[in-house]
């Protein structure tokens, strides 16, 4: 009986490792090899070529990366244009409308390259890892990430409940640029 109790206690220790954290990120100038297409048009009948390495799941499934992204969102003044996800000068991020696609690779590309009509490029300004963290946090605003990893706490006054309490939506695959997203001619 006692052996059983000890074995059960030891077994419960297995639950102590919730997730792995990367102790150090990639060096500054490295860039992930993700390639996404923003249009379904391409020469030939193969369709556009995309590379998604699956790296995004490291970030969408990791609570630490998302809380780091939440901090960066404020530090890099994203809320200067997007407010706390509700949008302002920039588009809202907490809804399920995605001009350039709602998967994490698309959001990473948006942050790294910038987009027409105001979104600046953060290439060379943020290390790749932090861009991924930011993108994962942006997805958590509309709860396109699992509930147990979405940030559950706001550090200061916030106009809405924490991300983990948002209703879940599925990320929009998307990627076709509507006229509103095109550069002014």
């Amino acid at each position: 009986m006692r052996t059983l109790a000890i074995a059960l206690v030891l077994l419960s220790l297995a639950a102590c490792q919730r997730e792995e954290r990367a102790l150090r990120g990639d060096p500054m100038a490295d860039e992930s090899r993700e390639k996404i297409a923003l249009t379904s048009l391409s020469p030939g009948d193969s369709g556009p070529i995309e590379v998604r390495t699956g790296r995004g799941e490291e970030y969408t499934g990791n609570a630490y990366h998302q809380s780091e992204g939440k901090k960066l969102f404020k530090q890099m003044n994203c809320n200067g244009c997007h407010a706390n996800g509700g949008g302002g000068m920039g588009v809202p991020l907490m809804d399920d409308t995605w001009i350039y696609g709602g998967r994490i690779e698309n959001v990473v590309q948006t942050i790294r390259e910038g987009r027409p009509n105001g979104m600046p490029s953060f290439r060379g300004k943020l290390p790749d890892e932090q861009i991924w963290q930011l993108a994962a946090y942006v997805l958590s605003m509309s709860r396109a990430v699992p509930q147990d990893v979405a940030p559950s706490r706001d550090d200061d006054m916030h106009p809405r409940p924490a991300e983990s309490r948002q209703p879940a939506v599925t990320g929009v695959q998307g990627g076709t640029v509507p006229p509103s997203g095109e550069a002014p001619q």
């Binding site: 102790l23 150090r24 990120g25 060096p27 500054m28 100038a29 780091e68 901090k71 290390p127 932090q130």
Partner: peptide, 14 residues
Amino acid sequence: APGVKPGVHMPSIK
């Protein structure tokens, strides 16, 4: 910086 102080929020700069 992360090599000197693992967990610090300053990234390594290339």
